[in-house]
Amino acid sequence: MAKISRLSGEQRENLVAYLDGELDETSAKEIEQALASSPVARHDVDMLSRTWDLLGQLPTSPAGEEFTSRTVSSIRAAEKPKARVDDAAVSRAIRRTLGLAIAVLVLLGAGTAGFLGTNRWIPNEADEILNDYEVISELDKYLEAGDIDYLSKLQEHREFSEHDEPNAP
């Protein structure tokens, strides 16, 4: 009587494939011949088959009632934020660029106004001298006269006029 030990390693591996109907015709016939001559091999095949059937006792685990809606919602949620992020990113970029441009314009305006303002409305030392040039240029005479009313009265008399002096008799 043939024993299981007489099955080659390949034949033992083929036992399962034989049960699964995955062997070609030649290999299947070879296994059938080995099984016909070996009660141990037949016992093994029987046990392989019966223990395999036990897997059918495992509990089924269908998805929960909310699974479909949760999954579809999660897919939509995963897609939408991306779009929102893209739109928001574009909006943020536009706002940021506009803000930057406005800030630069304000700074330029402020700088220009400041420059013009300081040059036009805040008098410097030279401006004061230029404004008072007429007085300063005649300051020696004014100091000699001592009184502005006296000089005014002198100017009223023609005899003391500077323009008439060279022609005076």
């Binding site: 083929n14 494939a17 046990m47 223990t51 395999w52 036990l54």
Partner: peptide, 20 residues
């Protein structure tokens, strides 16, 4: 796959045969 399933089912047979 043939080797995987052969070894797997042999392991299951060893574990479950006593119960069968």
């Amino acid at each position: 796959v043939k080797s995987l399933l052969s070894r797997a089912r042999e392991n299951l047979r060893v574990k479950l045969e006593p119960y069968v």
